[in-house]
Each structure stands twice: as C-alpha cells, then as structure tokens.
Design a protein around this nucleic acid. Structure first.
Length: 330
DNA sequence: TTGTGTTTTATTGCCTCC
DNA sequence: GGAGGCAATAAAACACAA
C-alpha cells in the first residue's frame, strides 16, 4: 500500500520543524556493549543545514519524563540553533539509510504510560504525542500497533496458562475418581462373592431339610452339584445387614463366581422363609424406575418353565457388568 | 570475537469501517 | 476509495554464551 507508506526522509511532522536534534546514546534495555559495531556518542548534534528530516532515525533527547528538565515547548523537544561542530562521520552515520534506531528509554517509558491509559490513539492524540516525543506520527502509530501485538501475545500466554491450570486440576480430580471407582468396584465383587456363598449355604440347608422329608428326591443337575460342592465348603457365616444393603444397591461383576442354576430365585420369593430382600424402588424417581424396568431383568418364579434359562444379559435383576458400571463412567 | 537467539522497529498485504 | 487496524514478516539492534 504505497499510499500509506511514509517516506521518513521527507520533511514533515513536528520534528521536521526542529533545527537540529539531539541524539542520545541511551537505548532501551541497551547496554553500551563493546560488541556493538556502532560508534557511541553521548549526544549527537545534527546540523540544521541538513534540510531533510531524519525520519525514524531521529531520536530526540529528553532528560526527564516529568519535565523537570524540559523546555517550554515540549518535554522531549530540544531545539538547538547551532549548526556547527558536527562531525561529518557522525552525520554520515546518522544519515545511514535503512538503519533502525531504537527509541530511548524515556520515550518508551512515556509511550508505555500512554498505552496504559489508552491502547488505541485518536489521530489528534497521535499527532500530539509525536510532537511531545519528537517523532513522526507514523512512528507513534507503529509503536502502538506493535505494542498491542505484544500485549495480545502476553494475554494469550496468560490465557493458556490459566487453561492449563484448569486442565491439570480437572485431570487430578478425574484420576482420583477413577481410583475411587476401582476401589468401589472391588468392594462390589467382594460383597457379591459373600452373598453368593451365603445363598448356597441357605440352599444347602433347604435341600437337606427337604431330603429328610422325601427320601427319594431326584438329584440335581451337574451345575447344581458343583454349586453344592462349592457351597458345602463354606462355613455358616451369618449374613450381615450391611452386606445385603450393599448387594442391593450395587451391581454384580461378571467376573465374580456365580451359580445360574436358579437357586437364587429364593432371593425373590417373599413368601419363602429364606427370602433375603425385596426390590425396593421407593427411593427412585419415576424416570429411574422406568430405566430399571428397561434395563433390569425381572426374574421368573420357580414355577416358570423357562426359569432355568435366564437371558445372559440378566443376572439377579441387576444389569451385567458392562451396563452396570456404565453409570459410573465419565 | 563470533555465532546465535531474542527483541524492537518498520513494511506489506489484507480487511473493515465510514 | 481512503484511513486505519491487524497478522505476518523482514531486518536491525541487542543480549549472551562459548
């Protein structure tokens, strides 16, 4: 956009009115590093005979931002009428084309303060600032533009750090919950095992009682025998109330040992003396009850002909593991 | 002193607004 | 259509380790 490109070498702007400029060696964050290939001069006086404005290379001295050493005209404006004692070498250096000059620390400080108050400049304010600092309005605009870009970058970094912290915190919570889930899952398995063993024990006592009444009772299936064998190994431990409530509210793990031969129907036989617990949905909302009716398998009674072949996805009226832990998933 | 990475100043091209 | 803002980029100035 050529129309916007400012030719700094042309006379114009506030600084062009100056007869001469005092250049300082003061640089932003700069050190008078010996490594610098540039000549160092505490102050450089440019002859007023030089008719052309030095453009962005023009650095105007100002001793004190607060104006303690300022002139009447401007805090940063020093006018000198002398046009002699100018080292030609220095002048050549100063006039070097395409050489960038950094703003002085005081100039930057002043601009920073201004930026704190207003990060965008009205055209009038821009010209005013340019006069104050002895710079081209275009330089002021560029400085503010670059400053806004730096501010934006910093802001993005802050936002990123903030998001990172939030993520870390959430991740830690998530990990803790996962651990807790595994712990609870293990408890469920343990409780389920206890409950199964207890059932077998009850069933055994029932069978022995009935066999004493009917001597020629038929022997059960192989699975029955297996369960009986297993149950016979279990000592008679009274079932605690907490075990029952835990088993009621939790779910069974598919990995846990089980007998699917139908003896568990005793759990759901309210009339039976060995009835362990009843399904209580009183504390469930209607929606939850609906969900249960969809997802849970209502066990048939002993008389049901299909009783011995319950759906594989059903177990004790609880969803099988994959579904059972679904509501614990995140 | 030199090589290299960072910061600052300035340009360019595109976009939006009036 | 011109003015001004922004993103991307160039390049000088600067910092610093080896």
């Amino acid at each position: 956009m050529a129309g916007r490109t400012l030719v700094y070498g042309q006379a114009g702007g506030a600084a062009s009115n100056m007869n001469s400029f005092l250049l300082q060696n003061q640089r932003v964050g700069g050190s008078s590093s010996s490594s610098s290939s540039q000549p160092h001069h505490d102050s450089l006086f440019i002859s007023s005979s030089s008719s052309s404005f030095l453009g962005p290379r023009s650095m105007v001295s100002f001793k004190d931002v607060n104006g303690r050493n300022g002139s009447n005209k401007s805090l940063f404006y020093h006018s000198f009428d002398q046009d002699d004692n100018v080292d030609e070498e220095l002048e050549e250096y100063i006039r070097q084309p395409d050489k960038k000059r950094r703003l002085t620390a005081d100039q930057v400080l002043f601009l920073e303060k201004t930026f704190e108050e207003e990060n965008k400049l009205e055209p009038e304010r821009k010209v005013e600032l340019a006069k104050e600092l002895g710079l081209q309005p275009r330089q002021i605009a560029i400085w503010f533009q670059n400053r806004r870009a730096r501010w934006k970058t910093k802001q993005l970094e802050k936002d990123y750090e903030s998001l990172q912290a939030s993520y870390d915190s959430l991740k830690a919570d998530y990990d803790n919950l996962l651990k807790e889930k595994e712990k609870l899952k293990a408890e469920v398995v343990l409780t389920t095992d206890k409950l199964l063993l207890k059932e077998k024990e009850n069933e055994n006592s029932k069978l022995s009682h009935s066999s004493s009444l009917s001597v020629a009772a038929p022997k059960g299936s192989t699975a029955d025998s297996a369960c009986e064998d297993e149950a016979s190994k279990v000592s008679a431990v009274p079932l605690k109330q907490e075990d029952l409530s835990s088993a009621k509210s939790d779910v069974f793990d598919s990995d846990s040992p089980r007998c699917t031969d139908g003896v568990h129907s005793s759990l759901l036989e309210p009339g039976d003396s060995s009835y362990v617990f009843e399904q209580d949905h009183s504390d469930l909302s209607q929606d939850e009850e609906d969900d249960m009716s969809k997802n849970l398998c209502i066990f048939p009674k002993m008389e049901d002909a299909n009783y011995h072949d319950p759906p594989s996805s059903c177990y004790y009226g609880f969803p099988v593991e994959d579904q059972a832990f679904g509501f614990w998933s995140y």
